[in-house]
Design a protein around this nucleic acid. Structure first.
Lengths: 254, 254
DNA sequence: TGGTGTTCTATGCGTAAAGCATATATGCTC
DNA sequence: GAGCATATATGCTTTACGCATAGAACACCA
């Protein structure tokens, strides 16, 4: 979304209008960004949650978030949240949806512009201090067509984590978005290290989609579309035949 | 997005926090909604624009919009704009994307939550008074892959209409969204009257996609997926063999 | 009244892709 | 070197898509 600013001639008339404009003439909702940082580990889709130490919803689990400053763009605000609250920078980050129910925050009217980020599991594990105040929750979303609705996040013991605000709804939207995009957008590569096997890529897609895929069809489709390029290397220390390592290849014109 | 509000137990501790909370502690961006109302006429995708009578961007063409009130949801605000500025109610309306560049409005920091609405051309023509202050601009968007970027809106003489703010960018996003969704979401039906011929449906899809489709494949795919049901009626007063009229049929489980 | 023109609708066929099964290859362990 | 688990390659079947052809329905016109 990096659009160039196109300077526009401003008349004296308009200049006078702008000088007289009172931005605080009537109250506006507050605006926050919330970032769902996703990864795939143990064949499951996971999301980074932080335990809230402050009111409201103190003690519950929530997506990292923060209010939007007056002089930063939405994309910049989301990147700032991701950097300061998860220690991650330079990874895939895209706007998801804006949640605007009137009573979604008990403090006051707060809109949430939700973003989602994709990282490979190893990098996320390195970035995260294991303080107990963060969790990499499993997202288990049955297929059930397009119905959607909120999602349950579980820790590794299988216990459901209580989520703050409408964050369960946000997670439902993000999973459906990923499922819709994974077939044509290079999402899986963002969830893997630079070199990966085709099996890893397939398992990543399966974790997103919540269902198994046909092995041969998946491999043929991926290589026929030129999405991946072989590196010549193979994985190491496998107790069976090692697979070739591939890398992401932009399909023509990168 | 009609999520049920789930009441949550509130502790005395939290009650005290909420009572002391100062919502105006620091400045927030203003929030507006802008609605792109789309239809298909003369085999072309068209969007409803209004000429701005006030600063800023006075005299330029813009999407109908308005600020979000403190006590209305985003969806409600978009429906209100659509009702009061275009005289339309009860039609397809969905959130598109939120635009948050810092300098996108010269007055002050204004975020725009963009929505798009779909109507059939006859209904839109009935709702619109022909005052010269509104325009049903053609959207001509070449295919050029996924690159995107701003879009040009033209009136029926082919003259380009100058757009206010970043509304050309919004139109670019909405066209790409429609192109991505039309294959699997029931968008075309929203742009047609209740009864329509398969040819009309195909031309609607072609207008959205900006390219021609294969007639036989389109018909087979649509009927095989059970998206449409024949009504038994046929069109009338055609100078050639009239086609059967169909209606939208929810694919299983409606 | 019957021919002409245009579009609708149905059918068949060749190609491409997807799903599925089978066979061979490779590297580790014992 | 035998056994094992997985990778990789090949072939077959089913399904969808693009394209061409043929008959059907209606208005128009001589």
């Amino acid at each position: 979304m990096s659009a160039k600013r196109t300077p526009r001639p401003v008349s004296d008339d308009e200049r006078a209008f702008l000088a007289a404009y009172d931005a605080s003439a009537f109250p506006h909702p507050s605006v926050a960004v919330d970032v769902a940082t996703l990864t795939v580990a143990d064949r499951a889709l996971r999301v980074l949650l932080v335990r809230r130490g402050e009111h409201p919803a103190k003690g519950r689990w929530a997506l990292p978030g923060g209010f939007v400053g007056m002089h930063e763009s939405l994309d910049d605000a989301a990147a700032r949240v991701l950097r300061t609250k998860a220690g991650l920078a330079g990874i895939f980050l895209e706007q998801l949806y804006t949640f605007g129910r009137v009573d979604r925050d008990p403090r006051t009217r707060v809109l949430s512009v939700a973003y989602y980020a994709l990282v490979d599991a190893a990098r996320l594990a390195r970035a995260l201090p294991d303080t107990g105040e963060t969790s990499l929750a499993r997202l288990e979303v049955p297929w059930k067509g397009d119905a959607g609705g909120p999602v349950r996040a579980k820790d590794d013991t299988g216990a459901a984590l209580p989520l703050a605000f409408d964050h369960a709804e946000i997670l439902g939207v993000v999973v459906r978005r990923l499922r819709g995009k994974v077939d044509y957008a290079p999402l899986g590569f963002q969830l893997l290290p630079q070199r990966f096997t085709l099996r890893q890529l397939q398992e990543t897609h399966e974790a997103i989609l919540g269902r198994r895929l046909n092995k041969d069809s998946f491999r043929r489709s991926v290589v026929a579309r030129g999405l991946v390029a072989p590196t010549g290397e193979t994985e190491k220390d496998m107790p069976y035949r090692p697979a070739e390592l591939y890398r992401y290849a932009r399909p023509e014109g990168g």
